[in-house]
Amino acid sequence: MLDHGRKAMNRCILAAALTAIVGLSGLAAIAHAEQPDDGLVNESAAAMKGKKVGFVPIAMGFDLTEAWAAGLKHDAEAFGYDLSIRDPNWSVDAGAQAFSQLISEQPDVIVVHPPEIQAYTRLIQQANAQGIPVVTMNLKADANGDVFIGANWYDIAVKQTEAIVKSCGQGSGKSGKIAVMQGVLTNPTSQYGIQAIEATLKQHPEVQIVSNQAADWDASKAHAIAVTVLKANPDLCGFIGMWDNMDVGIAAAIKEAGKTGEVALVSSGGGNQASACDNVANGNFSTYISYDAKGQARDLMMAVRSVLQSKPAEPGTKSIALYTPLKTITKESNYPGACWNLDDVKKYGP
């Protein structure tokens, strides 16, 4: 009798537990089904779920790539695709290696940030040939891939040159001597930027380039070069820099020489608060052309979403160009919100 009672009790507990489980899963099902199918939402989510996305930046740890990665991470979580970031830490060779490694793993899309015009060209073609769509970020390689998201470097350099002509050209009363600080010479910033600078300056013969050197995106190298240039040309009027993270080195050199405000520094970059707007506000940069990396991150998310949902039939044959809208920031146009904040983007997504 006692035994029977215990058995009954056991059965009771089991039944209760079962009910609870069934009830809970029912609730969960309800929670899922809460969103009505509008005809696309479920289908598109399913198309992205479990896909593999590879990202090879030039390096992690600076505003541009961190913002883009934040965007991809956001989507990877939201749609359940698998994101793999390979950080070659500024080494072209390691980057090429990581890229070819990714190709052999056959992901559904590869996002690359080419350090040079040529270095990844063959690899992009190779990936396309194997049926993997490629999205190139910000720096245009010779091969188009499927989507290009990034700045038009010719445009940026034209805008930068016009800005410097304004401060150093006719009527400014300055010497008209300017210096150009390039990043990596084989990079599209230099390849197209220099042509733009030269073409623009043709119309302003009073402005001449007295120094044209490369600092490999390295602020300390830019600093060393700028110190030299400033000393060699005491009457220098301005610098054109090609990337804010590097140009802070120039700004430091100008500051050391006590010439802040006197020597113009026109920079460009991803529009991160710390390296763009702050530097404009404190006078380090006189003019800044922003290609809004936060917006690019958004573009990247959308591009990856669309490629994942509808894979190009023959990758690499029809390329889409998404050139980033440019924003000129000066002391006057440095409104709150002109820049974005990296910490916030990392925390809340682009």
């Binding site: 080494s91 072209v92 090429a96 040079e116 015009i117 270095a119 063959r122 990596v184 010479l185």
Partner: peptide, 16 residues
């Protein structure tokens, strides 16, 4: 061989 593989003459070639 590096030249044949990447066809790129970047300034960081062989650094380190």
């Amino acid at each position: 061989f590096y030249a044949s593989r990447l066809n790129a003459a970047g300034s960081d070639t062989g650094v380190g």
